[in-house]
């Protein structure tokens, strides 16, 4: 029996820039159970990071939630004040950012930064916090933790810093860890170390993970569920097998065809997705992918399709799957 941990309903987040409203997230719903690993994939500007920031209550100015609800572990995030949010950030939900070089404070030691979280959220005294930070550093696989605690971020390598970030994120054993492109800035051998570590820790303290990435390889190996985002919308979501072996949305199909595969013996020509990503200031009226889609129909340009249930967990928003609804809407004329 698993319990719902995160329930996002019809969330819309917009940035009100001088040039106009940018709908970074346009009506998305996500549901996660305890222990799930959810992968969110999409290109730059698809709204995957903003989704993460919304869950943390960290949407930067001039953005704000326009409508919709975010319920996490019994909290209504969308209604909480900054002070209430601070109580759960780093405590029940933590985030690891993409760039370990800039997300640590350069003027505090690693020890200071780990202990800061502990002082904020627990009643530990100095000695307990020190012991706990040693324990955390060994948990994330850093050797000589006593020495490392006294070091400053610039003395550590990229992989090491990302481990420290993970140690900070895990300090209070959160229910949910959001990893926003955690390995994009790292080399592939270091990436393998960090991903391995995250999966191990997940088992150890039974947390859920949201993994945000543009690398389909990473989600294939780590996630149970995958949501594919395009221009602020989730265009398709399902289990890893659904997405990789039975993709329904033209964008998902296009993505899978456009990546070179290392395990293929013969040379296959890549099939790129034509065109350029959408301009978020002037998004198309209908399906955002329509201008780049090979099977685009008239209706695609006018109206956003509803989700079609392919199977229990697999949903997809595409007019091709909605022929019936499409015929009803246009009276059968193409």
């Amino acid at each position: 029996m698993s319990k719902t941990l995160l329930d996002i309903n019809n969330l819309k987040v917009s940035f009100f820039t001088p040039a106009g409203e940018v709908k970074a997230i346009n009506d998305i719903s996500i549901r996660m159970e305890e222990g799930d690993v959810l992968g969110i994939v999409g290109e730059s500007g698809s709204g995957k990071s903003v989704t993460a920031y919304s869950i943390m209550g960290l949407i930067p100015y001039p953005g704000r939630i326009v409508s919709g609800t975010i319920e996490f572990n019994g909290h209504k995030i969308h209604e909480m004040t900054e002070k209430e949010l601070q109580d759960i950030r780093g405590n029940e939900v933590s985030i690891i950012f993409q760039d370990p070089m800039t997300s640590l404070n350069p003027v505090y030691t690693v020890g200071n930064q780990i202990q800061e979280v502990l002082f904020l959220h627990t009643k530990m005294d100095k000695k307990q916090a020190y012991e706990r930070s040693l324990e955390l550093l060994s948990l994330v696989g850093i050797n000589e933790p006593e020495r490392r605690l006294k070091q400053y971020p610039h003395e550590l390598s990229g992989g090491m810093r990302q481990r420290v970030m993970i140690a900070i994120a895990l300090a209070c054993e959160p229910k949910l860890l959001i990893a926003d492109e955690p390995t994009t800035a790292l080399d592939v051998t270091i990436q393998a170390q960090i991903l391995e570590l995250m999966m191990e820790l997940k088992k150890k303290i039974n947390m859920s993970i949201i993994l945000i990435t543009h690398d389909l390889g990473i989600v294939a190996s780590m996630c149970d569920k995958i949501a594919v985002m395009y221009a602020g919308k989730i265009v398709e979501s399902g289990t890893a097998d659904d997405i990789f072996y039975n993709p329904q949305h033209e964008y998902t199909k296009g993505l899978l065809k456009s990546i070179p595969k290392l395990n293929k013996k013969e040379h296959e020509k890549l099939v790129p997705i034509k065109g350029v990503p959408v301009d978020m200031l002037n998004p198309p009226a209908g399906c955002p992918f329509a201008p780049r889609c090979d099977s685009c129909m008239k209706i695609c340009l006018r109206k956003m399709p509803e989700y079609t249930n392919i199977s229990d967990k697999h949903i997809c928003a595409c007019w091709l799957l909605q022929k019936k609804g499409y015929e009803a809407a246009t009276g059968g004329d193409r």
Binding site: S157, Q193, L195, E196, G217, S221, F244, Y245, N263
Partner: peptide, 27 residues
């Protein structure tokens, strides 16, 4: 060997079976 084994393959069945040779330490 380890470089190639560290590359995530975008195919869930393959990558679940795959054994990574995880290198210790940093460059």
């Amino acid at each position: 060997r380890s470089l190639i084994s560290a590359i995530p393959i975008p195919d869930p069945a393959v990558s679940r079976k795959k054994k990574r040779i995880v290198l210790e330490g940093d460059v």
